[in-house]
């Protein structure tokens, strides 16, 4: 039983990690909690389903198109909402982020309605629900395996992008010191847009994977998932990409175990409690820097 819970938790945790890196990267470059990131994740799922049902695209093509749309949304979000406030007080930017989150969520509500809907099963490869591995009581479906593979490949891709490419170097430079980076000839706005694009792509994939895994999607799904992913980012140390990955997995496992062994009623509560506890007792997270407000 425990092993099964661990596997389920790991699946969930990898998805959280995919969302969490979006928060952490944006926080790293512009020190803003992008509350609307959860909405990008939600939009990923809805775009994908819409491409399947309305445009009749096959599953993988729909995923690709949904990712492109989310990247566009993420970049536009930054350009329209956040860029004009770069020099404004942080409170203004935070309030804008909350406002955009609510706005996007309700745009989705108006377009797709408030009811939750299932993921079109016919579009999925049929082997997804079959068991890939059975070891005693523990089983692993092809879908879970698919989620593991996608998440891990994307994480490795992200790691290589950040650490081995020119643009990744520019992102890290920006996270260190924006002024110095721009003096070194880095196009700050371009790099920020790229960061949003990268985060949005990861978020979109996470949204699609979740809606397939739980076979449901609804306009408010970004709200709880967003906060939990943020909790994961905090847990790992905000601003730290490996931290977000670790934090996501830890949180996913903790939540599944908490729901299984403590109380399923407090499933979401586990994430919030972990987050508050981490913020109070170790605000720098597992792999992050100190955030105590010195000033």
């Amino acid at each position: 039983m425990l092993e099964q819970q661990l596997i389920n938790g790991l699946t969930l945790g990898l998805i959280y990690a995919l969302i969490a890196v979006g928060y952490t990267m944006v926080y790293g470059v512009i020190q803003l909690i992008n509350f609307a990131h959860g909405e990008i994740y939600m939009l990923g799922a809805f775009f994908c389903v819409t491409f399947i049902t309305a445009a009749g695209l096959p599953f993988y093509a729909a995923i690709f198109m949904a990712i492109l749309c989310c990247i566009l949304c993420g970049i536009l979000l930054d350009i329209i909402a956040y860029r004009p406030l770069r020099k404004a007080p942080r409170l203004a930017a935070l309030i804008t982020a909350i406002g955009m989150s609510i706005f996007l969520q309700n745009v989705a509500l108006m377009i797709w309605g408030s009811r939750s809907r299932p993921f079109p099963q016919t579009a999925l490869p049929p082997f997804f629900r079959e068991k890939a591995l059975v070891l005693g009581d523990v089983s692993l479906t092809w879908l879970q395996l698919f989620i593991f593979a996608v998440a891990i490949i994307m994480m490795i891709g992200l790691y290589l992008t950040i650490n081995k490419t020119r643009i990744g170097t520019a992102m890290r430079a920006l996270a260190q010191n924006k002024t110095a980076a721009s003096l070194m000839g880095i196009n700050v706005n371009y790099v920020i847009s790229f960061t949003f694009a990268l985060g949005s792509a990861m978020g979109a994939v996470a949204g699609i994977l979740v809606s397939v895994y739980y076979n449901t999607l609804y306009p408010t799904m970004g709200y709880t998932a967003g906060v939990k992913a943020f909790a994961a980012a905090v847990l790992g140390g905000i601003g730290s990409v490996p931290g977000a990955m670790v934090g996501g997995v830890v949180l996913g496992v903790a939540e599944t175990l908490g729901a299984g062994y403590v109380s399923s009623l407090y499933r979401d509560g586990v994430a919030y409690a972990v987050m508050i506890a981490v913020i109070i007792f170790r605000p720098s997270g597992i792999l992050g820097k100190s955030v105590i407000d010195k000033a």
Partner: peptide, 22 residues
């Protein structure tokens, strides 16, 4: 929690109110 920077505080208050509802 008020020792922390404003962003963390915002998210803690959010978590708190969700816990109240739960």
């Amino acid at each position: 929690t008020l020792r922390l920077t404003g962003d963390y505080f915002a998210i803690v208050t959010f978590g708190f109110s969700e816990l109240v509802v739960l």
